[in-house]
Design a binder for these strands. Structure first.
Length: 467
RNA sequence: GCCCCCAUCGUCCAGCGGCCUAGGACGCCUGCCUUUCACGCAGGUAACACGGGUUCGAAUCCCGUUGGGGGUGCCA
């Protein structure tokens, strides 16, 4: 039997990295077993039915290279099947109408000294359907339901502890629990792979499955949650988790996928950074961890840096475009000053110094700005310009040498070296700080030779004046 | 409160009863390379939560404790 998995997000705005990880693991499982994945949008709640939310799911998945064989299907478009299923459950006595609001049910519970929750108040009351009625599923009073989870092993729930949950809202719309069972059955889903936060809903779906007589159940696998530094489930509200945001900040899709694959799973040979094809080959659902994983951007930065350095330089230049032309980010220089040929020249040096594409402008800004800012409070300035008392003499020396030096990297370098030798001081770093504004960066002189002599002289004078 | 899940370096992953004086990666530190920084290279730091079992033998199996997390909606 070929495996069929589904990625079934609720359309609640941008896709976050946790959902992306779920999608990825479904996809990895499908790819590694020669099966297929379908995409299904779980929009049974009317509030979630917004077309822009669909784009927010499809675009990032596509960007990551996660593909699906069918869909997107919309649960909202399958509503009639779900309504029929609810009707069937009422008919067969598995479900009943209830006209209590949540507040009323809680009040009854507290009056009766029972723990909060719904205690089957409307069971067997012969309540007729009406405008304010919901339909609740009658959970068995005895017995237990056992999930054979591929990742977690056996998980047991006592039926008596499951309350009679709502399967149809008072507006007539069935809830996702019904839709889940019906759609998974109709779509021939063999494996349900999703976050651990849904583990508690699984017994309810299984109960519905049996009551509707839907046949063989899928196998379940509940993935460990992705958490923040406080070990809380990643949340859109408090954490920086938009997948698209990461991509537009200069993280490469391949690096993102590689990093995500490493959260909750690892290759048996300890080789972490590798092509997706190898990951598919090695991926085993049963080897996925149980413990939650911290989404560590520091590690992502490293992986992303590795991927960037591995790029052919032409590709690097291509990918850099939005960042050097200010399409998605601000650039610190006047756009008219930007020279793609200069960037192409220094690109290999930049490429091995950035961990995200967004860092590119930082390394080349001094090539396209008229003046560079000096941060007199910075460690760079203090270390290079203040500590050595020869600095004014060094800059004066360079200034006079640069008046008529041949304007090539080699000649400039040699001239600065001579100044240093003559004064018995290190002249390179002060020159770099004066010209670029900082003490760290790409090889200096060939790049500096692309700037007009007068601009370089101005910077040297400006820095000299601050000493 | 109740239900469920989890527990190896700060972080991610390896370990599936003897190969473990616990391995790799990120981070951090040191050194080498280098006219800066980075890359690269060579080292270092650092963990089996605790207590009981089971076993000739436990990071690995079982129970408990503690700690963390998830759920507890007419959201999914």
């Amino acid at each position: 039997m070929t495996t069929r998995v589904r990625f079934a997000p609720a359309p609640t705005g941008f896709l976050h990295v946790g959902s992306a990880r779920s999608a990825l693991f479904n996809w990895l499982y499908a790819e590694s077993t020669g099966g297929e994945m379908i995409l299904r949008i779980e929009d049974t709640d009317a509030a979630l039915r917004k077309p822009e939310f669909i784009d927010a799911i499809v675009k990032p998945l596509t960007a990551l290279g996660i593909t699906w064989a069918e869909g997107p299907y919309y649960q909202s478009q399958r509503k009639q099947f779900h309504v029929d299923a609810v009707e069937q459950l009422v008919q067969s006595g598995h479900a009943y109408y209830c006209n209590l609001t949540r507040d009323a049910a809680d009040a009854l519970a507290s009056d009766a000294g029972l723990p909060s929750g719904y205690h089957g108040w409307s069971r067997d009351k012969g309540i007729e359907d009406g405008p304010d009625c919901v339909v609740r599923f009658r959970t068995p009073d005895e017995g237990e339901i056992v999930i054979h989870d591929i990742i977690r092993g056996e998980v047991r729930f006592k039926n008596a502890e499951l309350e009679d949950f709502v399967i149809r809202r008072s507006d007539g719309s069935p809830t996702f629990l019904v839709a889940n069972a019906v759609d998974d059955a109709d779509m021939g889903i063999t494996h349900v792979i999703r976050g651990e936060d849904l583990l508690n809903t699984t017994p309810k779906v299984m109960l519905l499955w049996d009551a509707l007589d839907l046949g063989d159940k899928p196998q379940y696998a509940h993935l460990p949650l992705l958490v923040n530094a406080q070990r809380k489930k990643l949340s859109k509200r408090r954490d920086d988790v938009s997948l698209m945001e990461f991509l537009s900040k200069g993280y490469l899709p391949e690096a993102m996928v590689n990093h995500l694959a490493l959260l909750g799973w690892g290759p048996p040979d300890d080789k972490e950074i590798r092509p997706i094809g190898e990951i598919i080959e090695l991926f085993k659902l049963e080897n996925v961890n149980k413990g939650s994983a911290f989404f560590d951007v520091t590690k992502l930065d490293h992986i992303n840096g590795e991927y960037i350095r591995a790029l052919p330089v032409e590709r690097f230049i291509e990918l850099a475009e939005p960042f050097v032309y200010g399409v998605d980010t601000d650039i610190p220089w006047d756009a008219a000053n930007y020279d793609p040929e200069v960037f192409a020249m220094v690109a290999p040096d930049v490429q091995q110094r950035v961990s995200t594409l967004a860092e590119i402008p930082h390394f080349i800004a001094w090539l396209f700005m008229d003046e560079v800012p000096y941060d007199l409070e910075s460690k760079a300035w203090n270390k290079a310009m203040r500590k050595g008392k020869m600095t004014p003499e060094i800059l004066d020396g360079i200034l006079s040498a640069f008046g008529d030096v041949e304007w090539t990297g080699d000649a400039m370098n040699a001239a600065v070296g001579e100044v240093g030798d003559r004064l018995e001081a290190r002249s390179q770093v002060p020159a770099r700080v004066a010209i670029t504004g900082t003490n760290a960066g790409i090889p200096l002189w060939d790049a500096a030779a692309t700037i007009d002599r007068e601009i370089v002289l101005q910077r040297l004078r400006a820095a000299r004046a601050l000493l």
